[in-house]
């Protein structure tokens, strides 16, 4: 969205943390380079991968992304603070995004939001104490023919009736989609635990990975 973003203004300030991005994440970010004319254009894909991998994008993660893309860290913060999708502090394992635009509101979206809040015991932009759910609202999700609707991570729940809310939230698989997935924007598989390096990979292997990704 916009000139004023909630939740994104106070990044976790982990300046003195050790390296937070793993080698696999770095390689995945670099694998996007051949797709764009500038390294900066890789910023959104990179932030997606970092958030998938770490759960949020902390201060240190922004600085490391900036280093990989050879841009000032302030540019990363500038971009990240514009978009609603990125979290700069920890979020729940699943993010519930309730649509509140006109079609959903006319079809009972507000009541649906209230039911979710009551069930989880949290307000908007809050996370449950067990770290399972975060709740946000968003403008139109383009699911107006199925209003009211809400996203849980990747899955769009359509035509949600008030009596369905409890059942949806109790379903452990409520964030899985039933379709062939692409792992292009997913967190990479981590070969070894907790290990990360400082050196960028050489360019030839990136191209090879790139071809494999296609």
């Amino acid at each position: 969205m916009a000139w004023k973003t909630l939740d994104r203004t106070e990044p976790v300030y982990d300046k003195d943390a050790p390296v937070v991005l793993s080698e696999a994440v770095r390689r995945k970010i670099e694998s996007y380079f051949p797709r764009y004319e500038t390294k900066r254009a890789v910023l959104l894909p990179a932030l997606h991968v970092v958030q998938e991998s770490l759960g949020h994008v902390s201060w240190k993660a922004m600085a490391e992304v900036a280093e990989i893309l050879e841009i000032p860290p302030s540019d990363v913060l500038d971009t990240i603070s514009f978009y609603t999708h990125f979290w700069t502090k920890p979020k729940g394992r699943k993010v519930i995004t309730v649509c509140r635009s006109i079609s959903c509101e006319l079809m009972g979206g507000r009541e649906m939001l209230d039911a979710v809040k009551a069930k989880l015991g949290i307000g908007e932009h809050e996370t449950t104490p067990d770290g399972e759910y975060s709740l946000v609202t968003e403008e139109c999700l383009a699911g107006c023919d199925h209003a009211p609707c809400m996203l849980i991570n990747e899955r769009l729940h359509k035509n949600v009736r008030l009596e369905d809310v409890e059942k949806i939230l109790a379903d452990l698989e409520n964030d899985r989609i039933d379709a062939q997935r692409s792992d292009l924007y997913d967190a990479p598989d981590e070969p070894e635990a907790g290990q990360s390096g400082d050196d960028a990979a050489d360019a030839t292997s990136d191209v090879a990975e790139m071809k494999a990704a296609d």
Partner: peptide, 27 residues
Amino acid sequence: VYVHRGAGAYVCGEETGLIESLEGKRG
């Protein structure tokens, strides 16, 4: 052909906002 994902901003549907966003900037 590459699929590029945005990050949540209405104004990125405006063509030059979309271009800025593709370049890794605010939309």
